[in-house]
Simulated scan of single mutants.
Amino acid sequence: MLEGKITKGIGGFYYVDTEKGIYECRARGIFRKQKITPLVGDRVKISIVDEEAKKGVVEEIDKRDTELIRPPIANVDKALIVFAVKNPKPHLSLLDRFIVLAEKENLEIVIVLTKADLDDDNTLENIASIYELSGYKVIPVSNKTKLNIDKIKEELRGSVVVFAGPSGVGKSSLLNEIDANFQLQTGEVSDKIKRGKHTTRHAELLKLECGGMVADTPGFSSLTLDDIEENELKEYFIEFYNYGDCKFGSKCVHENEPGCGVKEAVENGEISKQRYDSYIQLLNEIRQSKQGKRRY
């Protein structure tokens, strides 16, 4: 059998990149019976059905190192979470959702702030200060001025990277700037609603001239945290790690408990209050979701 990686999946067909080229494959029915859906990024073994037509069958799927739900990508090393400084206005609670889900998969995270040339009210500096204090790398970019395009290429080199973020922030435009061979379809942001059109219809792994592979994925307007438990959420706010000396130890959820090191760090300005407030918001959302499920 031939080994390869799924780079695209559309309508039950999986396109597998191998040393002998790309094969259009169906998956064995056994996967459906086992309730396993092949994902873009899966390392697979295929049998050849028609060499001339480059058609095959996915026979085996290797164990996944990571698995994202939205976007549905396997075996990603790094997440570049892309938000615009302006147009559309950045919603940091949504950014924190992306971060939590990427942290859950133990991905390296880089925050990319596009449209830096439009920053006229220090939005970029304010966002960067919040997330750099939290321990994340923040890279402002501009397609117009070519700001930090080379830095993004360095982040991509040698890795399998997922580009994630809401619609309209310029993910596809940035990818086109990084590698002109992509020429991905891009959409203008509506002047009326200030949201982007969904220009990416499916997840796809794209080979980079600078090395590595990147996943271009559909934009999202919401992300749920259904698979995260109440006492688990704090593990995905990495700035809490150094302030876990709480009276109630590992049982502390850093909310109303007395003697909480995290709350003290927030009061002292060592942890961003915006990030802490976002944590509490997500914590309450998880509780409400669990209560709703129990009710029904």
Rank of each mutant, 00 (worst) to 15 (best):
F248P: 03
E59F: 01
Y236N: 04
N176R: 07
S172H: 07
E229F: 11
P88S: 02
K197T: 12
S278G: 04
K86G: 02
V44T: 00
D117Y: 10
K192T: 14
G212T: 04
K293V: 15
L147P: 10
R201Y: 06
R295K: 15
I238C: 02
N122K: 14
D96F: 02
C246N: 13
I139Y: 07
L208M: 15
D117L: 04
D227M: 13
V58K: 00
L133V: 10
D277K: 12
L133F: 05
I127E: 08
G261H: 12
K251I: 06
S250E: 15
K45A: 10
K8C: 01
I36M: 09
V253I: 15
E154H: 08
T186N: 06
L107S: 10
T217W: 02
K146P: 03
R70N: 06
V100T: 07
K45Q: 10
K207Y: 08
E67M: 06
D17R: 05
Y276E: 08
I149E: 03
Y14F: 14
L225P: 09
D121G: 03
P38Q: 02
I48E: 02
V57K: 11
I99D: 06
E103H: 07
N75S: 01
K290D: 05
S250V: 14
E59M: 06
Y15S: 01
I139S: 04
E24Y: 01
D245R: 14
V58W: 02
D179V: 05
V40Q: 03
A116C: 03
L208F: 09
L283M: 11
M1T: 12
G168H: 10
G41P: 06
L225C: 04
S272N: 01
Y136K: 05
G244M: 15
S93W: 08
S173E: 13
E230L: 14
L95E: 09
K144D: 10
I69N: 11
I130F: 06
V110Y: 04
S142K: 04
Y243L: 07
S272E: 02
K78I: 06
S47M: 07
I149K: 06
Y23S: 04
I109D: 02
N176Q: 12
E230S: 06
G187T: 14
I111V: 09
L118P: 03
E285I: 08
E59A: 00
P166T: 09
A84L: 03
D62M: 11
I130E: 15
I99W: 08
A27D: 01
K8D: 00
P88N: 08
Q274P: 00
I130T: 11
F163I: 02
S159P: 00
A215C: 03
